[in-house]
């Protein structure tokens, strides 16, 4: 070990010690490169558990299998304003704490039913928010609610579903997207529709 490394490690230990009290669970960084938002491994894990609750693994792949939580992070990092990113990060921590205080254990260790009950509460509020936005003529999915926790949930839900329905898995195994349809049938009987093909 050379001198430079020793000093660096020492600094890490001291720095780590200083950070420890406020960041007990911080065990590193997010697993993908992010340009703007700073996400710890624990925050990433929490987000993955939220995404997995939204799209759980059944007999078909779930959010974690499809890395949808990483897609959410990528989108938040690249496609949202600073204000929305801040709300997302603040809301993430609030929801994590809310779960822990409600169930006395981390969100990831709660049962699917517990996790769903918490998220469904937010989902009702988010749906109502979207409906109100729509009524006001705002159709952008980029409208984010003022409440941080709801903002986090709204963004995560929206991007998880977006990532899921635009995943290779979904677009090849669930509702097939055809790059080259090669046809336009202007009169197509509804009774002949196949559920597994994206018509039009």
């Amino acid at each position: 070990m050379d001198r430079r490394t020793v000093i660096k490690n020492l600094a890490l230990v001291i720095g780590g010690a200083a950070l420890l009290p406020s960041c007990l669970h911080d065990s590193g960084k997010a697993s993908i490169a992010l340009k703007k938002i700073k996400v710890s491994a624990d925050q990433e894990k929490f987000l993955a558990d939220v995404a997995e609750t939204i799209i759980p693994k059944t007999d078909t792949p779930g959010a974690k299998d499809l890395h949808l939580h990483l897609f959410v992070l990528k989108m938040v990092d690249d496609c949202f304003s600073k204000k929305d990113q801040d709300a997302f990060m603040a809301g993430l921590d609030k929801l994590s704490k809310e779960a822990e205080s409600r169930f006395s254990k981390p969100f990831g260790q709660c049962s699917q039913a517990q996790r769903e009950s918490l998220l469904n509460e937010l989902d009702h509020k988010q749906m109502a928010f979207q409906k109100a936005q729509y009524a006001q003529g705002k159709k952008s999915k980029r409208e984010v609610p003022a409440d941080d926790m709801l903002a986090f949930y709204g963004i995560t839900k929206g991007e998880t579903v977006f990532g899921y329905t635009y995943s290779k898995y979904f677009m090849t195994k669930q509702i097939v997207y055809e790059l080259v349809p090669g046809r336009y049938n202007s009169y197509f009987p509804v009774k002949n529709l196949k559920a597994n093909i994206k018509h039009g």
Binding site: P56, E116, N120, V161, I175, V190, L193
Partner: peptide
Amino acid sequence: AHRGMDTDSSGVGKGLKDNLANPTL
């Protein structure tokens, strides 16, 4: 004129997953 697909994207979990895969005309 076109017919879109209506998808119920409310809720979370298996029910949501099923709904996403089964939109209605």
